[in-house]
Simulated assay, not measured.
Amino acid sequence: MLSLLIFLLLFPLADLAAKEIYMWRDENGVLVFSDTKRPGAKVISLADDKVTSMKKADTSVFEKNNTQTKIIEYGIQIVSPSHEETIRDNTGSLHVSARITPSFNPKFKAQLLFNGKRNTPPQSNAVFVMRNVDRGAHTLQAQLFDEEGNVVATSEQITFFMHRASSIAK
């Protein structure tokens, strides 16, 4: 983005000399440049000689946002199996995948709750494998822990159905 700003401010463009350029930070903190005015946008005016130095540019947007601390809200969602899905596996094997947003921090840990109980120790990825799951209805929920062990996100509880061949002889 800085390269774009330098390009816009230093490259001689006759048709841009008379226009106003606006800059602002979006909801993710990304610096945006546009010729369309938005609420809270700062005007960057290009000088008549088509060259504006960085000293003339209003840098208050940079300074103001550098002092703010952005709080990241994490989320975790079970993506496989889906809610009320039937799993057909005679060995009772179950593969559970969770999605973490915005992205998985390597210092964080994920844990799976099976029928309301912690089934696996916290681990550094969001894929879980379970073996010999009994037939019938079961619930799953995932939790995300920060580096201090605090729960920062919990998924919605889903129900799945394990379908295995009966062990009763016919």
Results as ranks from 00 to 15, higher is better:
residue 7 F to L: 13
residue 41 A to G: 12
residue 71 I to N: 10
residue 10 L to R: 12
residue 56 K to L: 08
residue 67 T to M: 09
residue 160 F to H: 05
residue 34 S to G: 07
residue 34 S to Y: 03
residue 118 R to G: 08
residue 15 D to L: 11
residue 164 R to M: 01
residue 68 Q to T: 14
residue 118 R to T: 06
residue 111 Q to R: 14
residue 164 R to V: 02
residue 35 D to N: 09
residue 66 N to G: 09
residue 45 S to Y: 04
residue 50 K to D: 12
residue 129 V to S: 14
residue 34 S to M: 04
residue 69 T to P: 03
residue 62 F to I: 15
residue 45 S to A: 13
residue 159 T to V: 15
residue 75 G to K: 15
residue 118 R to W: 01
residue 13 L to M: 11
residue 77 Q to V: 11
residue 89 D to H: 02
residue 10 L to Y: 06
residue 22 Y to G: 07
residue 144 L to Q: 00
residue 15 D to T: 09
residue 138 H to T: 03
residue 166 S to E: 07
residue 167 S to A: 11
residue 149 G to R: 05
residue 115 N to R: 02
residue 34 S to C: 07
residue 38 R to H: 14
residue 48 D to Y: 05
residue 143 Q to K: 13
residue 53 S to D: 03
residue 137 A to H: 04
residue 145 F to N: 04
residue 100 I to M: 00
residue 23 M to D: 10
residue 87 I to A: 03
residue 36 T to K: 11
residue 50 K to R: 14
residue 156 E to N: 14
residue 116 G to W: 04
residue 97 S to L: 13
residue 99 R to C: 02
residue 114 F to Q: 00
residue 19 K to H: 06
residue 33 F to E: 01
residue 141 Q to T: 12
residue 126 A to T: 12
residue 49 D to Q: 09
residue 99 R to S: 12
residue 80 S to H: 07
residue 52 T to V: 15
residue 47 A to T: 10
residue 24 W to S: 14
residue 77 Q to E: 15
residue 105 N to Y: 04
residue 150 N to A: 12
residue 153 A to Q: 00
residue 19 K to N: 06
residue 140 L to W: 06
residue 161 F to C: 00
residue 105 N to D: 15
residue 142 A to F: 07
residue 51 V to N: 08
residue 78 I to T: 08
residue 3 S to D: 09
residue 36 T to D: 07
residue 134 D to V: 05
residue 60 S to E: 12
residue 6 I to Y: 09
residue 135 R to P: 00
residue 57 A to Y: 04
residue 161 F to E: 00
residue 128 F to M: 00
residue 35 D to M: 14
residue 5 L to Y: 01
residue 61 V to K: 06
residue 143 Q to Y: 02
residue 31 L to T: 13
residue 79 V to F: 05
residue 109 K to C: 05
residue 32 V to G: 04
residue 42 K to S: 13
residue 164 R to D: 00
residue 11 F to H: 05
residue 55 K to L: 10
residue 50 K to T: 13
residue 77 Q to D: 11
